[in-house]
Design a protein around this nucleic acid. Structure first.
Length: 485
DNA sequence: CGTGACATGACCTCTGCTAG
DNA sequence: CTAGCAGAGGTCATGTCACG
């Protein structure tokens, strides 16, 4: 028996048949995203909790001896026992699935699909529909299908007690109603796989609901330097109209064609080829005093909380970096970094309060630092007053830069990582070893606090995190310098 | 994955105008 | 005086972008 489709391949195919074709025929083209492994680890942990609390005492069907053996093991368990099965494996009509949790009952299987998400999405139900179709087709009637997701309001009481971390939603009815839809998909995808590469135009489906790993491959070799897609907040209708009118590059669009003022500005500056800096714009009344602070946080988040009193996906700060200018001609740096694995929040907050004194603007980029401070205020009433005072001094550079600066090379984005190469090309994140964005900082933290990590590796991570966070705040210094105030 | 800031669009009320 | 209308202004939900 050959099975050519897995459940995840079908979900890819729904997003884009060409993606499905490439996943099967050209897996060598996939660029492995470093975040993928971290997501899989998260999913694994959530899955373990689900087994333990939703259907304890079951048996696990491993893949060590291949799919054939997994199929046989599943059959044996179902025929000769009534224990729950984890990763039960089924095949029907060339489609193979592995199901998170299957509980046999007298009237059919009770299926639980576990997701690390906090709400049930449409594509979760498609997932369940495919599972139900395969199980029924394999001669195993399905009685009930549930999706288990994370309840983000859960507060971890400690001592390994995760009762209530997951909540379930019954999707039996919808999943059963999609039966003919699933059959259509399978028939269509098997046919697609027999032919040559499907010819599919690029579009929204390349990003939603998941980013396609073959984007680079699908992009035409002679793509424009400033594609229309870079126009900020462009609607699909406008994009379509502009392409119809024969424009491929932002610079092709004539003066006056764009009604949206931000898009028009991007067009005008891109066409000029030169950066635009409007220093007299609006915020000129804000003369910033000294001392000036430049602040950046790094946080960790866990789908399965590890510290008592914390919630799933709560952002827990473990590092801050702060440059200080007491006078125009001086610059010093301070930082805090806790890799002990103990809850870092209290020391983080106390050191921050004592280091930032009581006066002077605190520059940040984006609303993230304010959000984290507010989270700390909720959990540390004794520091609430001091933390609120810090929050009140925060000056967000993002809206200021958005208003008064644009460079063609920003390609429609005002994120720090897009702005910085234009303002301070000497600050290059790509030379940093290992940690070049917030996501990698989170991963590095998770690795550092893992019990198996060696002291040498922890020291390496400490250096990497310190260098990354310090560069972030130095970037803020450069931005304020550029504003000339 | 979560949160905040902001833009956008739908919908509502309020106001002032005009025709009857 | 009222019914009907358009434009101004407000609220709310939704979407996008930014941070981690």
């Amino acid at each position: 028996m050959t099975h050519r489709l897995s459940k995840s391949k079908i979900l890819s195919g729904i997003q884009c048949p060409k993606r499905l074709w490439l996943e099967i025929h050209r897996p060598d083209l996939i660029e492995y995203d470093p975040n993928t492994l971290a997501r899989m680890q998260t999913g694994h942990k959530v899955g373990e909790i689900a087994c333990q609390y939703l259907a304890p005492g079951g048996v696990y069907v491993g893949l060590e001896n291949g799919f054939g053996h997994a199929l046989k093991l599943t059959r044996d368990h179902l025929d000769f026992s009534d224990l729950p099965i984890y990763e039960a494996t089924f095949v029907h009509d060339q489609v193979l699935i592995r199901s998170d949790i299957v509980v046999p009952t007298g009237t059919g299987l009770k299926v639980i699909e576990v997701k690390s998400s906090t709400s049930v999405k449409d594509y979760h139900i498609w997932d369940c529909a495919v599972q139900a179709w395969v199980m029924q087709g394999a001669g195993r009637p399905v009685q009930n299908i549930e999706v288990a997701v994370i309840d983000s309001s859960f507060v971890y009481p400690g001592k390994g007690d995760y009762q209530g971390l997951l909540k379930t939603e019954n999707v039996t009815k919808t999943a059963f109603e999609m039966r003919t839809q699933v059959e259509d998909w399978v028939r269509q995808f098997l046919k697609t796989l027999q032919g040559s590469t499907p010819d599919i135009e690029m579009g929204e489906h390349c990003r939603s609901p998941f980013e396609c790993p073959f984007m680079e491959f699908c992009l035409p070799a002679d793509r424009p330097a400033y594609p229309l897609e870079c126009l900020p907040r462009i609607k699909s209708q406008l994009l379509q109209d502009l392409k119809q009118e024969g424009f491929e590059d932002i610079r092709d669009i004539p003066d006056g064609r764009l009604a949206n003022p931000t898009q028009e500005r991007v067009r005008r500056v891109t066409q000029s080829g030169e950066e635009e800096l409007l220093l007299e714009a609006d915020c000129s009344h804000e003369k910033f005093s000294y001392p000036r602070y430049f602040l950046d946080f790094e946080t960790a988040q866990f789908a399965v909380p590890v510290w008592k009193g914390t919630r799933p996906y709560q952002q827990l700060p473990f590092q801050w970096s702060c440059h200080v200018q007491d006078r125009p001609d001086n610059l010093r740096h301070m930082e805090f970094l806790d890799l002990s694995g103990e809850p870092p929040m209290r020391d983080f907050a106390e050191s921050l309060v004592s280091s930032c004194q009581e006066l002077g603007p605190i520059f940040v980029y984006g609303s993230f630092e304010k959000t984290v401070l507010h989270g700390l205020i909720q959990h540390m009433p004794d520091l609430a007053h001091s933390l609120q005072a810090l929050s009140d001094r925060i000056v967000d550079l993002l809206p200021i830069i958005r208003q008064c600066y644009y460079h063609p090379e920003m390609r429609g984005s005002w994120s720090l990582k897009a702005v910085l190469p234009c303002i301070a090309p000497e600050l290059d994140y790509t030379v940093l070893p290992g940690i070049q964005d917030g996501g990698q900082a989170q991963e590095a933290y998770a690795e550092a606090i893992h019990p198996d990590t060696t002291p040498e590796r922890i020291e390496e991570i400490r250096k990497g995190l310190a260098a990354y966070c310090e560069m972030d705040t130095l970037a803020l210094v450069k931005i304020v310098e550029k504003l000339g105030r």
